[in-house]
């Protein structure tokens, strides 16, 4: 195992309740890499993503994080799965990222408050801090969820379909934001998407699920192999 690897999957079979969805998954994600996981609906990309996030256990095989210690995972869910009945302000949503560090019966520390403000600044939404999360646009909500993930001070940023369901301008803003954060914080990024056309050309690695097999390669190789497109 290379120590610069952030996540390594060894002989992993993923699935639910012992029923395999994808077998013999072997790959590593380097520290600081920007990796995109693509594949058609039902191919198992969400299951693989959730396995990496430790939300579901692998059917067999092992998922190894860096040097063995559990890293901090900055998770960005699909915004449509979050219920809008909760009357959160944008600031309150971002502050959830600090909940892992705050002890019960204690208020949010000044450091955490500053961190929340910094994360809001990073995504360009500090002015919307007191607005209701449910009243923001789709693209703004997505950026708030990215800020929430940043507030966990993550080693790895994991994004589930961050540009799905938003207009093309918002897609561009979100992709630029993720790219900036990746460069600025030297973050390891793993992103799930099926919007291949919105991906920037410089992406290091593409994980492509095709015919129940996982293929790893650079953007140009993968695109020409599976779509015949050239970058």
């Amino acid at each position: 195992m290379h120590t610069e690897n952030c996540i390594t999957l060894q002989d992993v079979t993923i699935g639910y309740h012992g029923n395999p969805v994808l077998r013999d998954v072997n790959f590593s994600i380097r520290k600081g890499a920007f990796t995109v996981l693509v594949g058609p609906n039902g191919s198992g990309k969400t299951t693989l993503f959730k396995t990496i996030l430790r939300l579901i256990p692998p059917v067999c095989g092992s998922v190894i994080y860096g040097t063995g210690a559990h890293p901090r995972l900055g998770y960005v869910p699909q915004r449509m799965f979050l219920d809008e009945i909760y009357p959160f302000t944008a600031g309150e949503v971002v502050s959830m990222g600090t909940f892992g560090q705050i002890k019960p019966f204690c208020s949010i520390s000044k450091t955490s408050r500053l961190l929340v403000e910094q994360c809001l600044k990073d995504v360009g939404l500090l002015e919307q801090k007191r607005q209701l999360f449910s009243q923001l646009s789709g693209g703004q909500k997505q950026r708030i969820l990215i800020a929430r993930a940043l507030a966990t001070e993550p080693d790895i940023l994991l994004l589930d379909e961050p540009i799905t369901g938003v207009d093309i301008f918002a897609q561009k803003i979100i992709m630029e934001l993720i790219s900036q954060l990746h460069k600025k914080h030297n973050l390891t990024v793993l992103m799930v998407t099926h919007e291949i056309h919105s991906l920037p050309h410089w992406i290091n690695e593409l994980l492509w699920i095709h015919d129940n097999k996982l293929n790893l390669g650079n953007m140009a190789e993968m695109l020409s192999m599976f779509t015949g497109l050239k970058t």
Binding site: L53, L73, Y75, P77, L82, M96, F99
Partner: peptide
């Protein structure tokens, strides 16, 4: 609100 987020932290 968010079981997955809670689990990851």
């Amino acid at each position: 609100y968010d079981v997955d987020m809670a689990t990851t932290i």
